[in-house]
Computed example of a mutant assay.
Amino acid sequence: MFCKGASVSGPFWDHVLDYWKQSLEKPGKVLFLKYEGMKEKSGFHLKLLTEFVGCPISPEEGRSGLVEEILGLCSFDNLRNIDVNKYGRGRIVGYKAFFSER
């Protein structure tokens, strides 16, 4: 149903396509990342993201292991073990639902 557009925010694929088009027209305003690419080249995409938001990682920071440290902090294993994500609740579901294993 979701892929057919039956969702609260409307057709998902239309939103994705609009953002992709905007990223081509306004690359300085919209950064379009794909999950698969982020999984395959996490360090590359992290550097791309930091440059996009205006806080690039310096060569010295890169050599000191900052990229790996950030990736570790952002990992699902780390995030799923933070108390707010274990026990906190949003309006509809507990945050833990976003970190469950399949």
Rank of each mutant, 00 (worst) to 15 (best):
S42W: 03
H45C: 11
S64Y: 09
D14M: 15
D83C: 07
E60F: 00
K26Q: 00
F32L: 04
C74G: 09
P27W: 01
E101C: 14
A97R: 14
V53Y: 04
D14Y: 13
N81E: 14
L49I: 08
H45M: 10
L66A: 07
L17F: 15
G54I: 01
E68V: 07
L71N: 06
V30Y: 10
F2H: 08
L46C: 15
R89K: 12
Y87F: 12
P11C: 13
C74T: 11
F2R: 00
L79I: 03
K21E: 13
D83A: 07
K21G: 03
D14N: 15
S100M: 13
V53S: 01
G10D: 07
S42H: 06
F76S: 03
T50D: 02
K21Y: 14
E25C: 00
R80E: 04
G62N: 06
E25K: 06
G10M: 04
L66C: 13
L24E: 02
P59S: 08
V8Q: 11
F76K: 06
F99A: 09
S23H: 00
K26M: 02
L17H: 15
K96R: 14
Y35R: 02
F98R: 12
D14C: 13
D18V: 09
K39H: 03
F76W: 04
S9H: 03
D14V: 14
G28E: 07
G88H: 06
F44T: 07
G62W: 05
N85F: 15
K4S: 04
W13F: 14
E69T: 11
V53D: 01
E69N: 08
V30D: 01
K41M: 08
M1F: 06
E69L: 14
K47Y: 11
S7E: 11
V67I: 15
H45P: 04
F32V: 02
T50R: 14
D18G: 04
P56V: 06
S64N: 05
G90A: 08
G10Y: 04
Y35S: 02
S100V: 13
D77T: 08
D18L: 10
G88F: 12
G90N: 07
L79S: 01
S64A: 12
K34Y: 15
